[in-house]
Amino acid sequence: MAATSAVAAPFTYVNDRFGTVCTFPDDVFTDRQPEPDNGDGQQWLSADGASLICSGILNVDDDTPKGFVAAEKASKEPGYKITYSKAGKDWAVLSGLRDGKIFYERRLFGKDGIIRTVWVDYPPALKSKYDPLVGAIAGSLKGP
Rank of each mutant, 00 (worst) to 15 (best):
T83G: 03
G79T: 01
G56V: 08
D61E: 15
K66V: 13
K66H: 15
T83P: 04
P65C: 03
L97G: 11
G79I: 01
E77W: 09
A87V: 01
A70H: 06
G56M: 01
I82P: 00
K89L: 11
E72V: 11
A71R: 10
P78Q: 05
D90R: 08
G88P: 04
G96C: 08
V69I: 04
A92F: 04
D90E: 08
G79P: 02
S95N: 12
P65L: 00
D63Q: 11
A70W: 07
P78V: 02
G67T: 02
I82T: 07
I82H: 04
K81Q: 09
K89P: 06
A92D: 01
S85Y: 02
V69T: 05
T83R: 04
K89I: 10
A74T: 02
S85H: 08
V60Q: 15
L94A: 07
F68I: 00
T83E: 08
S85W: 02
S55P: 07
Y80R: 07
T64Q: 05
G56K: 02
I57W: 10
A71E: 09
E77H: 11
P78I: 00
K66E: 15
G67Y: 03
P65H: 04
A70S: 15
K73D: 13
N59M: 07
N59R: 05
K66R: 14
K66L: 13
A87K: 03
T64C: 04
R98M: 10
L94I: 05
S95G: 14
D61K: 12
V93Q: 13
V69Y: 05
A71N: 09
S55R: 10
L97Y: 13
I57C: 09
Y80V: 01
N59A: 04
P65N: 01
S55D: 09
A87M: 03
Y84S: 13
Y80F: 14
I57E: 09
S75T: 06
S55H: 08
P78E: 03
A92S: 07
I82Q: 02
K76C: 13
I82G: 03
N59H: 06
D62F: 14
A74P: 07
E77P: 05
K81S: 14
V69S: 05
S85Q: 08
V93R: 13
S75L: 05
K81A: 11
P65F: 00
K73W: 05
G88D: 07
Y84L: 09
A71Y: 02
K76H: 15
D61W: 10
S95Y: 11
D62S: 15
P65W: 01
V69W: 06
G88R: 00
G67R: 00
S95M: 13
D62M: 12
K81I: 11
T83V: 04
